[in-house]
Simulated scan of single mutants.
Amino acid sequence: MQNLIICFGLGIMVAAIIVGIIVFMICRKKEKRVQYYIHSFKDCFREKQDIRLTMLTLLEKYKKNSKEAEALKAGLYYLDKSILQDYDSALEYIARLFDDDRVDKIHSQSIHFVWKNRQGIIALPKKGESDMRGGE
């Protein structure tokens, strides 16, 4: 009876160790995926300075049927087909996949950067309209 209890205890301990190793490996793999995405997003955005172009470039870096590629495709589809076409919702597809605050932070920074750059752009008058500031 005592041997049975010892064997049962050892079995539980071995199972706990195996589960711990599996959890550790999954977390480590996720961390590598997050780091790769963050690094790639920063590099592409620094070069392109456009979120849509950055998403297209990142799509080329991932395997065709990977989870990351599917999330990027969904975000790009949202940008192309939705009424609002906002970057925040488009990037939410990939942010949900990674579920990491660092990804949310670089997305927010890039949206803020694009928004600030677009504030300084003045729309040109339509063809045939006179400039309101100069007047006639």
Rank of each mutant, 00 (worst) to 15 (best):
L4H: 14
R96K: 14
L91A: 08
G120H: 15
R96D: 14
R118T: 08
L97P: 02
W115A: 12
D99C: 11
I83D: 06
K63F: 03
L76W: 07
K67D: 09
I122A: 07
K61C: 11
V14R: 08
E92I: 02
R46L: 07
A95L: 05
E136R: 14
V19G: 03
D104T: 07
D99Q: 14
Q49R: 13
R33Y: 13
D88T: 14
E92H: 10
K73F: 00
I12A: 13
V23L: 08
I12G: 08
M13T: 11
I38F: 04
A15L: 13
A15K: 05
K42I: 14
K42G: 08
K67C: 08
L84C: 02
R52H: 02
R133G: 04
A71D: 01
K29V: 03
I12V: 12
F98Y: 11
I94R: 05
E70M: 09
N3F: 10
K63M: 07
H107W: 02
G9Y: 10
D88L: 05
A123W: 02
R102W: 01
I111S: 02
Y87E: 10
I17M: 15
L72H: 00
L56C: 14
I21Q: 11
S89F: 04
E92L: 12
A69H: 04
A71L: 02
M132K: 14
E68F: 00
D80M: 06
D88I: 06
E136M: 08
I22S: 10
C44H: 06
K67H: 04
E129H: 13
K32Q: 14
C7H: 14
L10A: 11
A90D: 00
K105M: 09
A95E: 07
K42V: 15
D88P: 00
R102E: 09
K127G: 04
A71T: 00
I38E: 08
V114A: 03
K48M: 04
Y78W: 11
F45K: 05
K63T: 00
A123I: 03
L79E: 09
K48N: 04
I26S: 12
Q85A: 12
L4W: 06
N117F: 08
K42Q: 14
D80N: 11
I26A: 11
C27N: 09
K105F: 03
L72E: 00
F45W: 02
T54A: 12
M25L: 11
A69D: 08
I17T: 13
L58K: 03
G11Q: 01
M25T: 13
K73W: 00
V34R: 10
R46P: 02
Y78P: 00
R33C: 10
I111A: 05
I83K: 10
G120E: 15
W115V: 12
Y87A: 03
I111H: 00
C7L: 10
D50E: 05
K29M: 06
S130D: 06
E70F: 02
A15F: 05
G75N: 05
I22K: 12
V14G: 11
V114G: 00
L97C: 01
A69N: 12
I22M: 15
Y78A: 09
G75T: 08
A69S: 14
D43K: 15
L79Y: 04
I5H: 05
L58Q: 05
K42L: 10
I5D: 09
E136I: 14
L91E: 04
D100H: 03
I12H: 04
V14C: 13
S82Q: 04
A16Y: 06
G120A: 10
F8I: 08
R33K: 13
T57D: 12
G11H: 07
L72P: 00
I17N: 06
F8S: 15
